[in-house]
Simulated scan of single mutants.
Amino acid sequence: MLKKVLSKDEARDALRKALKAVLEEEIPPLSDNIVLFEKFQLDSMSMLETLIELEEMLGFSVDPEELDVKDFETVGGYTDFLVMTVAAA
């Protein structure tokens, strides 16, 4: 079985689409240094909704109990998390 490979650019694009779906607003292009909680006024619930969107979009599943909030602070951290998680799925 082939492992799915997700590039950083694909992960960034998927994150942008998930944020658009959850926040119901246009999301500008993302750069790795954007702090998600500040830029988009996210809270833990909207961040979880974003993760659920991404799970459905990219075909992976994670246990919320095993998540580290540090992985989701910046666009770069979140996309790194997505690349590694999809590769391990």
Rank of each mutant, 00 (worst) to 15 (best):
L15F: 03
V35Q: 08
P28L: 08
D9C: 10
K20T: 15
D43L: 06
E56T: 06
S61M: 14
F81M: 07
A11D: 13
A21F: 10
F60P: 00
A89M: 07
A14G: 02
Q41R: 14
L30H: 08
T79C: 02
E25C: 13
E24L: 11
L36I: 07
K8V: 14
R12P: 15
E26A: 13
S46Q: 11
D9N: 15
P28I: 09
L54W: 07
E10S: 14
V5M: 14
E10Q: 15
V86P: 03
F72R: 02
V22M: 12
V35F: 06
K17M: 11
F72K: 00
S31F: 06
V75I: 06
A18R: 14
I52T: 09
K20P: 12
D63M: 14
E73Y: 05
K70T: 01
D68I: 02
K8C: 14
K70L: 03
L19E: 08
V22W: 11
A11Q: 14
F37N: 11
E38I: 13
E53T: 09
Y78T: 06
A87Y: 15
E73M: 06
L51H: 04
L42S: 07
T50Q: 08
E66G: 02
D80S: 04
L23V: 06
L36Y: 07
E26W: 15
V83H: 04
G77A: 03
E10G: 10
Y78F: 07
E55L: 08
F37K: 11
L15D: 05
T79Y: 01
L82T: 03
K3Y: 06
T79K: 00
M47Q: 13
D68P: 00
E25N: 05
S61P: 01
A18H: 10
K20Y: 14
L19Q: 08
I34S: 09
D68R: 00
E66S: 05
L15S: 01
E24Q: 13
V69D: 11
F81Q: 05
D80E: 04
D80N: 07
V62Y: 00
E49I: 11
K4V: 15
V86L: 04
V75Q: 03
E56Q: 09
